[in-house]
Computed example of a mutant assay.
Amino acid sequence: MSNAAVLWRRVVAEAVGTGLLVTVVVGSGIAASSLSPGDVGLQLLENSFATALGLGVLILMLGPVSGAHFNPVVSAVDWWLGRRTGAGLTSRELTAYVPAQIVGAIAGAVLANLMYAKAAVSWSTTDRSTGHLWLGEIVATAGLIVLIFALGWSGRAAVAPAAVGAYIGAAYWFTSSTSFANPAVSIGRAFSDTFAGIAPGSLVGFVVAQLFGAVVGVGLLAILYPDAGRAADEIVTPHTDTTTTGATT
């Protein structure tokens, strides 16, 4: 099997995984609004619980194919840290992963909308354009980056499905922004005017904060785990070419 075909399969896994993640986030947000009208705290609990579980399942399901990044900043940091050691994503792989993640996220929001008999696209009107929310995104994204690479560096990438799901579920509550921590997911959530949405006008601030959070995360890794780049092939989980036994992609 050629390298191009292998990359194609991994790109599909990233698109499907990111899309289903957004479907979980948006779909559970719609369900929460319907099941618990008027109780925002309970809606957030329902939304965060479903997202944490769903993310863990998706990492287990698709991680063996692509590593289950489902997040442009995770892919970008994987490429950046792995450059010196020859590990992680190549530039070509990065430029394939990121568009797939974004397209998948948009498709996932459309799918959630349609499953609940809503318009395929309904632009969110939930404004999230204040500084304290951007700070929340910086914290959430930096923590996610450090967690993922710390697990890889320490040989514990196998527990990433539970650990990453738990982190995102917790960050729903301890960050002011409810922890989007993902540019692709943020873009996807703009396509649904629901509890989990974000107004298109708020996207630039959120994405910039997430990128800055990734930089902060890389800085913390340089201090705490200076050779974390050696584990870039283990991010988020170890992944192999499923067409050939034991061949690492």
Rank of each mutant, 00 (worst) to 15 (best):
M1W: 03
W8G: 15
R9V: 13
A13N: 09
G19S: 05
L20P: 02
V22T: 08
G27W: 07
S28C: 08
S28L: 04
A31Y: 00
S33T: 10
P37L: 11
P37D: 07
G38E: 07
D39Y: 13
V40G: 06
Q43F: 12
L45E: 06
A52E: 02
L55T: 12
I59Y: 10
L60I: 01
F70L: 10
N71Q: 07
N71C: 03
V73E: 01
L81G: 02
R84P: 09
G86F: 05
G86D: 08
A87S: 15
G88C: 04
R92I: 06
R92T: 14
L94H: 07
Y97M: 05
A100V: 13
Q101D: 07
A105G: 09
A105K: 00
V110W: 08
A112H: 02
A112P: 04
A119Q: 11
V121H: 01
V121I: 15
S122C: 06
W123T: 03
S129W: 11
S129Q: 12
G136L: 09
I138P: 04
V139K: 01
I145K: 02
I145P: 00
L147G: 04
F149K: 02
F149T: 11
A150H: 07
L151M: 10
W153G: 06
A158F: 14
A158P: 00
A158E: 10
A158I: 13
A160I: 10
I168G: 02
A170F: 10
A170I: 12
W173I: 05
A184L: 06
V185C: 05
S186W: 07
S186N: 06
A190F: 05
D193P: 02
T194Q: 13
A196D: 06
A196Q: 06
G197M: 00
A199S: 11
G201C: 04
L203K: 03
V204Y: 08
G205I: 12
A209M: 10
Q210E: 14
A214S: 10
G217S: 06
L220T: 00
L220V: 12
A222D: 10
A222W: 08
L224C: 09
L224V: 14
Y225E: 11
R230P: 00
A232G: 00
D233I: 01
D233K: 02
T237A: 15
T237N: 04
P238F: 12
H239T: 14
T240G: 00
T243A: 15
T244M: 11
T249H: 06
